Simulated assay, not measured.
Amino acid sequence: MAGETAPAAGRDAAPKWSTLGNVPGKTGVMICGHGSRSQAAVDEFAVLAQKLPALLPPEWAVDYGYLEFANPVIRDGLDRLRDQGCDRILAVPGMLFAAMHAKNDIPTVLNTYAAQHGVEITYGRELGVDPKMIAAAADRIRTAMVQADQDGAVPYEETCLVVIGRGASDPDANGNVAKVARMLQEGLGFGWMEVGYSGVTFPLVEPCLTHAARLGYKRILVFPYFLFTGILIDRIYGFTDQVAAAHPDISFVKAGYLGDHPQVLATFAERVTEQVGEIPPPNCAICKYRTQVLGFEAEVGAPQESHHHHVEGQGASAPGSNVADCRLCDSFCTGECRLEGDPHHHDHDHDHDHGHGHGHHGHSHDHDHDHPEYPHAKHPHGPESARRK
């Protein structure tokens, strides 16, 4: 969490109990999702939330909510937990890595709610780089390799692994994608590995895949390190098809995203229960808001505020939620709309399913807050690469 604001939802807000079997009052669990304009993504997150209680103490109440776009919003889930008599709530970000949403936006919502209603809320870690998450990713990759081998076996050492992460204006989150990719490459024995991102940073999907195609491998396996489907998954698979069409001599294989893999569920459960241990693990270990990170030094001590109230609860069917609304995209969202006439084209963390076509997707950037300038906004393999050639 950034800054020195109310610690009710922060890493220093240690709970007043120490064992799972000795918890005073009623405990609630709040899963804080990002939200999406994709109804399928919202539905998949809800399924995960419904499966999680089986991995937690039966007396704990579990609910969920979204930061933006989708309903229910986080406050609604917290209201439902309080209605069930919960006076202590263990909140976790439903996200793979900690960037602005997990470090800033969600804690702001939780802090505000805790102060307004006098409820104790602690805030756990993101899923992060965890052996269970690596195992879930490896399972998805192995499955894709086995299915691809039905058309002719290609060994791992003759395959280039391309891992595509979300992409953020936070080098901590981006670096963790690269670490996961390396662990997958080394653990499975791929011949080579490249890392790309669906937005904000560099390299984006198309330049990453085009580069991988030059390396001379018989097969390129594309793995989106994402929890759920949505516009960005469509983007990853869409660019994969485009690059594959330009390189018919290379076999391109699309692996499935993580979804509700049992190891993902186990990691979520651990992120909840570890908050009631003797020493809850700290969140945001390498945080650009707390310490100087190369290239992002100016963001230390940035005020903690949520940037997503303007699209909270807007609904997955809001204007701009599908490619058919966009005059720039054909079969999938390329992200080009971010660049056209948008003074914030450096994208920050705003490439998260904000719709298509600036000016007709129902979202304006004229808010009462400022975003920090992403230092590599004009990198030729970053957001600028979305422009049509």
Rank of each mutant, 00 (worst) to 15 (best):
F45T: 11
V177M: 11
F69E: 02
D139N: 12
P280A: 08
Q84N: 15
D63V: 00
F252P: 02
P383E: 05
L188T: 02
N174G: 09
C284W: 09
E270A: 14
N22G: 09
G118T: 06
T143C: 10
D139G: 09
C287P: 03
K16M: 12
M1Q: 15
H101N: 14
C329I: 04
P7K: 00
T5A: 14
I233H: 09
I279E: 13
G238K: 03
P248R: 11
P7G: 00
Q39R: 08
Y113L: 02
M1N: 15
D249E: 08
S321N: 07
Y225A: 07
T122Q: 09
H363W: 12
V47M: 08
C86P: 10
S331T: 13
G3S: 08
P303H: 10
M95T: 04
T273A: 13
R88E: 14
G65D: 10
T108A: 09
H261Y: 01
R219I: 04
L48Q: 11
H308K: 11
L56S: 02
G259Y: 03
I286T: 15
D83L: 10
Y257H: 04
G362V: 01
L52W: 01
Q50M: 15
L221D: 00
T291Y: 07
G301T: 13
T273R: 05
T291S: 11
A8F: 15
E44G: 07
T240W: 00
N174Q: 10
P375R: 01
G28T: 03
T229C: 12
